[in-house]
Amino acid sequence: MDLAEVAEHYAYLPDVRITRPFAVGGHRALRDEDIEDIAGQVRSDWGVGLKPIVDLLPQMERSGIVIAAETMETVKLDGLSAWDERSGRPFVLLANDKQSYARRQFDAAHELGHIVLHRGLSEEDLVSDFDMIEDQAHKFASALLLPAVQYCLELTDLSLWGLERLKSRWRVSIKAQIMRLRQLNILDREAATKLFKGYSARGYARGEPYDDVWKLQQPSLLADTFNAITGEGGISRQELLANLPFKAHDAESLAVLPSGWFSRSTGHVVQLRDFRPREPGHGRP
């Protein structure tokens, strides 16, 4: 069994609630406006309206997506996603390499795009239409994180400073915002190129404002589930490890558990003090 199968064997994971595309003809028939509408439907299903999504990973996990993280030792791979058709549950693996909060937000949204738009594609489709499929997932991520109507209403300054201000609210990188504005035809090619030149001149390619301040989001569903099922009255951590097809270090890394977690005993029970109001005359001084 894999991590999610073991977790679901001992505990209930959230039900899968994923919007499916409505375009007839599969991924090749998807238009840009279809992708915008589908991203909007996901937002509607989540009840987030048009406001910024600043906690995408837990939102995805609440929708039944199992997310793991791992160092992939390559800058060419930011994440992977797939549906397990046997369990009917989607999975995402995010890279820990050279990450920032905003970068992780976009990578997670990109993989969500594959989950929503590209379920059931054949290996032949994935190879022959690779560029199209990646472009669609990228457009979905942009539309999900920066809904066109609300984002454009707040766009009052097309300078790098203006985009930096919007980054603080929308939690989307300046680079991704420039690409979104190009996609929406708010910037023409010349204006986008000018912004990218200024972007490079300021050294933002090595790190944007806020990247050294915002703490990197980590998935928590697997870690929370494993902590719960090995708590008081549950199974031992060694029994849990015996059911996993990974060594302890690998399982800890994927589930975002502290190093050495499997070798530790279950935490001690702590007696909580009672701070309920006492009868008159018996309170603390």
Rank of each mutant, 00 (worst) to 15 (best):
V66R: 08
V66S: 14
I67N: 03
I67W: 01
I67L: 10
I67K: 05
A68G: 10
A68P: 04
A69Q: 08
A69G: 08
A69E: 14
E70V: 01
E70C: 01
E70H: 13
E70L: 06
E70Y: 11
T71M: 12
T71G: 11
M72S: 08
M72Y: 11
E73F: 05
T74L: 14
V75D: 14
V75G: 09
K76I: 01
L77M: 14
L77I: 09
L77C: 10
L77E: 02
D78V: 09
D78Y: 05
D78L: 13
G79Y: 06
G79A: 11
L80M: 13
L80F: 09
L80D: 09
A82Q: 10
A82F: 14
A82P: 00
W83P: 08
W83N: 05
W83M: 07
W83C: 05
D84V: 02
D84R: 12
D84S: 09
D84Q: 06
D84I: 01
E85H: 13
E85L: 04
E85T: 15
E85R: 10
R86F: 07
R86W: 06
R86D: 14
S87K: 12
S87Q: 15
S87V: 06
S87R: 08
S87N: 03
R89K: 04
R89L: 00
R89I: 08
R89F: 03
P90C: 10
P90H: 03
P90L: 08
P90K: 11
V92Q: 08
L93M: 07
L94F: 03
L94W: 07
L94K: 06
L94E: 02
L94I: 05
A95K: 13
A95T: 15
A95Y: 05
N96S: 12
D97W: 06
D97S: 14
Q99P: 09
Q99W: 06
S100V: 03
S100A: 13
S100C: 10
Y101C: 03
A102C: 13
A102I: 08
A102S: 14
R103G: 15
R103E: 12
R104E: 13
R104P: 04
R104H: 03
R104Y: 11
R104D: 05
R104S: 05
R104K: 15
Q105Y: 01
Q105A: 07
F106L: 03
F106I: 11
F106V: 04
D107V: 13
D107E: 05
D107F: 10
D107T: 14
D107L: 00
A108R: 00
A109N: 12
E111T: 11
E111P: 04
E111H: 04
E111I: 00
E111S: 02
L112D: 09
L112W: 02
L112S: 11
G113R: 06
G113N: 12
H114Q: 00
H114G: 04
H114N: 02
I115L: 03
I115M: 09
I115K: 00
I115E: 02
V116Y: 01
L117G: 15
L117D: 04
L117T: 03
H118R: 01
H118E: 02
H118W: 00
H118V: 04
